[in-house]
């Protein structure tokens, strides 16, 4: 029987993917780098696809490709990290919020309007200032704050003009009054590996991609508990074999509110402020554990 391989699925090898590949090399784990742009798989009931991989780390930068890559690989019996259901749950802010809310995880007050016409009433109910976010997307892209109805009306006009129907669904969140930073916690199999603050350096958004500065953050019991709950919520209660980045914001009393959960977590900022744990080591160790176990059922 041939040695089971680990696949690292990515079309763009950034700092994180290089760290993971280096760690796979260092541990001598048999692996292949799979470019999602050139991957295809035939679907056949008579001849199910046979792939040489037992485990796949899904590090694809495109939400669409990452979800479908995971679905296809799972169909062929490959255990994916993260599973497609988790990618689907985290890739859409409404789906994430539904799961968090159902699980009783504390989040900022959130409303969704299915068309811009219904959004102003929802914003009035929540109270300004509010944050408008696209359902999908990342790095703070198209996220805007409306501090009054005039700004909100202008933002809704812009959203109405966008061609994608999904952009006309308006996701609204209370803007939490916070100390100018948010928190990223890296979760591996439902347990926190560490946390950083992300301090906004220009404007109010605290995304590292927008220039926010990473700072060490103590992993308090309250923070850890909120993240464990969030990880369970987006993974159907079974966070084993998941790697997630939970973003939270503390209100002025220090109470954490979960903003979102990321399935393709970036950890360059984390690495610049924490010498230990090395996130790539933790992720690869987890993948190695899964590689030694049984493959998932197709």
């Amino acid at each position: 029987m041939s040695t089971p391989l680990l696949a690292l699925v990515a079309s763009r090898v950034r700092f994180e993917e290089k760290q993971l590949l280096d760690e796979l090399d260092r541990r001598g784990i048999p692996h292949q780098q799979v470019d999602a742009r050139s991957f295809s798989m035939e679907l056949s009931a008579a001849e199910p696809a046979r792939l040489p991989y037992r485990v796949a780390l899904i590090r694809e930068i495109s939400q669409t490709r990452s979800y479908y890559a995971a679905r296809l690989l799972e169909q062929a019996g490959v255990r994916t990290v993260n599973p497609s259901a988790v990618i689907e749950a985290c890739g859409d802010k409404l789906r994430t919020s539904l799961l968090l809310t159902r699980a009783g995880v504390r989040t900022p007050r959130t409303a969704v309007a299915l068309a811009p016409e219904g959004a102003l009433a929802a914003m009035r109910r929540i109270g300004y200032p509010v944050v408008l976010k696209p359902l999908s997307g990342s790095w703070g892209r198209l996220v805007a704050v409306a501090r009054d109805e005039e700004t909100a009306t202008a933002l809704l006009e812009h959203r109405s003009a966008l061609p994608a129907p999904q952009q006309h669904v308006i996701y609204i969140q209370q803007l939490i009054d916070s100390p100018g930073r948010d928190i990223r916690v890296i979760m591996v199999s439902g347990e926190p590996a560490g946390a950083i603050y992300r301090r906004a350096t220009a404007g109010w958004r605290a995304n590292i991609a927008l220039g926010a500065r990473p700072e060490p953050c103590p992993l308090t019991p309250g923070l850890a508990a909120a993240c464990r709950d969030a990880a369970r919520a987006v993974s159907g209660g079974s966070p084993d074999g998941t790697v997630l980045g939970v973003d939270l914001i503390e209100d002025l009393s220090g109470v954490p509110h979960v903003l979102e959960v990321n399935h393709n977590v970036e950890f360059r900022g984390f690495t610049t402020v924490h010498a230990s744990p090395r996130v790539a080591e933790v992720i690869v160790a987890e993948a190695q554990r899964i590689l030694g176990g049984a493959p998932c059922a197709p």
């Binding site: 763009r12 930068i61 495109s62 939400q63 669409t64 999908s136 997307g137 990342s138 790095w139 892209r141 980045g245 990321n262 399935h263 393709n264 977590v265 970036e266």
Partner: peptide, 11 residues
Amino acid sequence: LAPEVEEDWGE
């Protein structure tokens, strides 16, 4: 040249 950033890229 690397591909331009697409709308669904991210974390």
